[in-house]
Design a binder for these strands. Structure first.
Lengths: 150, 150
DNA sequence: TATTGTTATACTCTATAACTATA
DNA sequence: TATAGTTATAGAGTATAACAATA
């Protein structure tokens, strides 16, 4: 054919492809690891924000995670129904809900943290330790400018 | 060494968080870079698969990208309407559509490739060249086992 | 019977807009 | 007037199921 191939790099070399599929695969892995505990990786993200901190408003949690405040409502609903968090009006500003991890919630977090770390480690197994650390560091670095702008 | 933490690591240190937001940010950047050409980063992914290759079936393109074959239909519809590809029954197997890049489609790809690379470079600007290369290599490495299993 | 493309449908995820209660 | 939480709704994105044409 008259189309002499100006060959594209392989699609799998595009950073966008690599990052997208890394995200998909890692999410599938961590969701599976957390499923026996009745939570998924997004739930775990919320727990991470709450643990070891003073009670926070729903909006503060949402901002920390970079999601909309409306997204938090159902998430906290589920946590409250399971007894993982308490949701009380903040005495200092009664428009706000003070979200606080319960004792069972903290215990759940600790189990989830172990499961999550194991899944992360399994995912990173193809890399030696310094390379894995460098990967994390590089991702932090490329995100840093965006975080400044937000 | 496993470091049992009294407090959670920062949520922003979780690999899942880093990868998710890297994906979101990179997609936003490349979409914006390609928008003047009338395509987005997903369209560009399809172009990358098609360029410099023999005509492929829609299913083959979908498989290469790791998406469902039904997802390809609307994508190819749009490309065909814009004159970027031709879609003809494959003479060898008339169930298949042979998808082939047109001349204008190739020209568009070349412009898009330049725009995409510029966006990638801008995104990776916080990293020095060896680190950027290592990031790409590390992502390829963690995805390699999954690709074998698929 | 199996496969390719297609269509219709459903499901997930998330954001926008509007409402309430507070401030 | 502005903000936190809530609700309803809509949009993007993608997958599943069923169907027609072809093998």
């Amino acid at each position: 054919m008259p189309t002499p191939a100006p060959h594209a790099r392989e699609p799998h070399d595009a950073l966008g492809y690599l990052v997208k599929h890394t995200h998909l695969r890692l999410t599938a892995l961590t969701d599976a690891a957390l499923a026996p505990l009745g939570i998924d990786s997004k739930d775990f993200g919320v727990l991470r924000v709450l643990v070891g901190r003073e009670p926070m408003s729903q909006q503060a949690v949402a901002a920390r995670l970079g999601v909309d405040r409306t997204t938090m409502v159902a998430l906290i609903d589920g946590f409250e129904a399971k007894g993982i968090v308490t949701r009380k009006p903040d005495p200092a500003d009664r428009r706000r809900n003070a979200i606080e991890l319960t004792g069972p919630g903290l215990a759940l977090y600790q189990q989830a943290d172990a499961a999550y770390r194991a899944a992360e480690d399994a995912f990173l197994a193809p890399l030696d330790a310094p390379t894995a650390a460098l990967l994390r560091e590089a991702l932090r670095a490329v995100l840093a400018p965006a975080r400044g702008r937000d």
